[in-house]
Design a protein around this nucleic acid. Structure first.
Ligand SMILES: [Zn+2]
Ligand SMILES: [Zn+2]
Ligand SMILES: [Zn+2]
Ligand SMILES: [Zn+2]
Lengths: 137, 137
DNA sequence: TCTTGAAGCTCTAGTCACTGGAGGAATTAT
DNA sequence: ATAATTCCTCCAGTGACTAGAGCTTCAAGA
């Protein structure tokens, strides 16, 4: 039987975050001690590690909720789980594309400034006029 | 003299967002009509385009506020403006690195699933065990 | 057993950059 | 003159936490 603090230390998830996950329905409401304190067991540890890992991979809470629900039905096909992951990969790739464009523009803008006065600053000028940009973003 | 709606149409910035920028101190409080409605001029249009462009490049509001303040002093050196852009580029590159790792892990995870039952689903198994991952993230 | 300090509880509010709605006033078009 | 549109202010909600206030419970040492 672990206290919420023990669970926190073992998983690296902060105490208020564990309570938040419970509120969001990712973790079942834990059993309580006589004095109303949460008491956890091994399977809560595993559940929390699952959530933490999914969050680290960038999945949002509704997606994780769905994955947990799916994982309760081992005999069902896993097409939905695979689709959640695939959709997320698509979203990650879209963000990557945007960030690459930003990186490119920022590099270009910074390298074009000779670093003298604000009046001539290419950073300021480029921000004032998207026409100076090479691509869209 | 433009109404807030005109300004919105010309810049593509939504009306509540323009009011929000005013509240955040990015735009000076506009003059008002007799009936208390905001009236804008050309330089507000330019200011808003500057803000919009800076936001599109991912700069946050405090950074934009500082850039606007700097741009009011054309004779000063532009080191601070350049530093803001450079710091932002560093932040963008860090995000890029993280996203590339995520993309890689997600690709790997998805490709390892044979798409049959939840019980064997590699997506679920990989989420349950970071040890199955190739790298950190 | 008593006491003290750490850790737990609930509830509320703050983060960031907006976005939307309610309820009412002003402006514009017919 | 009337109707339609736009404007005003204020408040609340988004996502995923995070922090604090004010109180209770727990664990350990004297
Ligand atoms: Zn410069
Ligand atoms: Zn641009
Ligand atoms: Zn699968
Ligand atoms: Zn992993």
């Amino acid at each position: 039987m672990l206290s919420i603090g023990d669970l926190s230390k073992r998983t690296g998830v902060k105490v208020p975050t564990i309570r938040y996950y419970e509120q969001m329905g990712l973790i079942e409401a834990a059993e309580r001690s006589e004095g109303n304190q949460r008491r956890y067991e091994r399977h809560d540890l595993e559940r929390l590690a699952f959530i933490r890992h999914a969050r680290d991979l960038g999945l949002d809470i509704p997606a994780i909720r769905e994955l947990i629900a799916l994982s309760q039905h081992p005999d069902q096909p896993c097409a939905n789980a695979d689709r959640i992951a695939a959709d997320h990969l698509i979203a990650v790739r879209e963000k990557l594309e945007k960030l690459k464009k930003l990186e490119h523009e920022l590099e270009r803008i910074i390298s074009h400034c000779d670093g003298h006065s604000i009046e001539d600053c290419y950073v300021i000028r480029a921000l004032s006029d998207h026409g100076l940009c090479e691509g869209e973003h």
